[in-house]
């Protein structure tokens, strides 16, 4: 266990450095004058002229070389100082903490909801087969074939505009969470219900499941004692792989629903060329990814002890 955590900590450092550095140079490589973009974000497009841009340039020290800017960012990072936003001037750490809470809430709600959708449907289609299996396969394929923002738009049109059941966008009340979480959950469940289905079929058809029945366990006892855990092992591992879909989906969905999370913040920061905020947001997503993968690995180990010691 300690070995695994140590290894993951090193990975965390590597990911942080890699993501931060990559975003830094990618942002520098974008065409256009950074000072203009930042000034436009501060004062509005119409109020920008050379003077305003020069003021921004002087204030933020944008004319220093890329290497010295990078070096400064790097030494700041070592003291856990992500700098100040180039647009608002507020500390990036503060903004990111604020956005992170919203993103984690959305991600967890989406994952949980996707499990609640995928597991019963996957098990039912494996158990029953026939038309239920074919219908679910069709829906899953269709949902997976469209980008996640199309699912979101359809949800908005149906639940918010047509039926007036839920707010279109924004945040604050639990009702605001429903549509973004549902959109994320649907795009995740579209695949995970098929994984549950396949694994359940494998277990239901296995010799050990048949023998559990043969030695006298009832179907429900055989499922609880020998089915559930054997199905869970590959499914949980798949949820780990799916985390990348979660990160991807969160960026899209937050922008669509104006959900004030990290994805939304990242998109805005990119338009405003707010490099410290971009770096901070990307960094935090990388960190989240490593942490959640570690949690999945630990869960897999306890479900399936065959892999030996955690390392």
């Amino acid at each position: 266990m300690r070995a695994l955590l140590l290894k993951r900590l090193l990975q965390l450092v590597a990911v942080s450095w890699g993501v931060g550095t990559l975003t830094f140079f990618l942002m520098r490589a974008l065409p256009g004058d950074m000072a203009y973009r930042i000034a436009a974000s501060r004062y509005g497009m119409d109020a920008v002229d050379n003077r305003a841009a020069d003021m921004v340039r002087a204030e933020l020290g944008l004319d220093q070389s890329a290497w010295s800017a990078y070096w400064q960012w790097f030494t700041d990072l070592l003291s856990w100082n992500l700098g100040n936003s180039l647009v608002s001037g507020a500390p990036v750490t503060e903004q990111i903490w604020h956005m992170l809470g919203h993103s984690v809430l959305l991600a967890l709600a989406g994952i949980l909801l996707s499990i609640l959708i995928a597991v019963p449907l996957g098990l039912a289609s494996a158990f029953k087969g026939g038309w239920l299996d074919r219908v679910l396969l069709t829906i899953s394929t269709a949902l997976r074939a469209v980008p996640v923002f199309v699912i979101g738009l359809l949800a908005v049109i149906m639940f918010a505009l047509e039926w007036n059941l839920l707010p279109v966008a924004g945040f604050g009340t639990p009702a605001h969470l429903v549509l973004p979480a549902l959109t994320l959950a649907l795009s995740l469940a579209a695949i995970s219900n098929r994984v549950v289905h396949t694994e359940a079929r494998r277990v239901f058809g296995s010799s050990f499941f048949e023998f559990a029945r043969m030695k006298g366990l009832s179907p429900s006892q055989a499922f609880m004692r020998h089915g559930a855990r054997n199905i869970a092992v590959p499914v949980v591992a798949f949820l780990g792989i799916q985390l990348i879909t979660v990160v991807e989906g969160v960026v899209m969905i937050e922008s669509l629903f104006s959900w004030p999370g990290i994805g939304h913040g990242l998109a805005h920061a990119i338009f405003a060329r707010d490099i410290p905020l971009i770096q901070g947001a990307a960094l935090m997503m990388g960190v989240l990814f490593v942490v959640m993968n570690t949690l999945v690995d630990i869960a897999c180990h306890y479900l399936d002890p065959r892999g030996g010691q955690l390392s």
């Binding site: 050990f208 048949e210 004692r225 054997n230 092992v233 399936d304």
Partner: peptide, 8 residues
């Protein structure tokens, strides 16, 4: 060897 639960 195929008839016993592989995880138990």
């Amino acid at each position: 060897w195929n008839s016993l639960d592989p995880l138990m």
